[in-house]
Write a protein that binds this DNA or RNA. Structure first.
Lengths: 132, 132
DNA sequence: GTTTTTGCAAAGTATTTGCAAATGG
DNA sequence: CCATTTGCAAATACTTTGCAAAAAC
């Protein structure tokens, strides 16, 4: 039975993640957190991101291209990834939670969760024909 | 400009993928295809899966846990992943293509595509309380 | 004959893990 | 003190790549 003990590193990772909204990778977080804890290791960052994700305090976003991203916003919302600049952004759109019911309808198992990612070209890349 | 040349290996990979519906990984395909082409290399499998995916003949499924899966069925449909047995299965459900319109509504960029994955416990794992 | 594809091996990413030392409760 | 977490380094998992030879056209 594993009791959770406080750690400054974990706290700092979560704070950092709550302060930004660009869905950073473990490595981006590692780089930033080193300014506060210069000796923190990448392994610790990965371990804490996994742990926070397991207990539901953050969300892992698997993009299908490169490293996983992390998001401190656990409210139901969807993401968009620009195929040019690769930025991961929040999408403002109406709730589509009912697709879960839709999926459950003729299914014998249990649908617990779902994740949606939209792909395309972001506003900036659309206008400039280059990456951002 | 790159012209596409026939290759038996590529053809075989596509046939194999069309014959099965379990969304295999590159490595599973590699193992199977070796019974036909014992000298095929894993690199060739990866290269062809990428190529087929790029030209839209197959679909890559990124699961967020382990290797990517591949699917020869390119019709719009959604997938379910059991968090116990990790199987990736097709979901029979009504079309939810309108979430794309929903996402486009207040978005300045271009939504080209989307992918949905449902997570939970499959019927078999639900009944047996163990993996399959 | 020129271009594309292959097999092989090596390299490249992303992530996890073993372990002794440090920290938390 | 005992359990958990850390830093470090090594290991692992997955995928891509350089290159000379083979195959396609």
């Amino acid at each position: 039975m594993q009791a959770l003990k406080y750690s400054r590193q974990r706290e700092s990772i979560k704070e950092l993640l709550m302060a930004r909204h660009d869905h950073p990778t473990a490595d981006m977080i590692y780089t930033d957190i080193r300014e506060i804890y210069p000796n923190i290791s990448l392994g610790t960052v990965y371990r804490n991101l996994s742990l926070l994700s397991d207990i539901g305090e953050i969300k892992k976003i698997t993009t299908g291209d490169g490293a996983d991203r992390y998001d401190a916003d656990t409210h139901p919302h969807n993401h968009f990834i620009c195929r040019l600049c690769k930025n991961v952004m929040d999408l403002k759109m109406e709730d589509i939670g009912y697709i879960k019911k839709s999926a459950s309808k003729d299914f014998d198992g249990i649908i617990e969760d779902y994740s949606v990612i939209f792909y395309g070209i972001c506003a900036l890349c659309k206008d400039c024909h280059k990456e951002h």
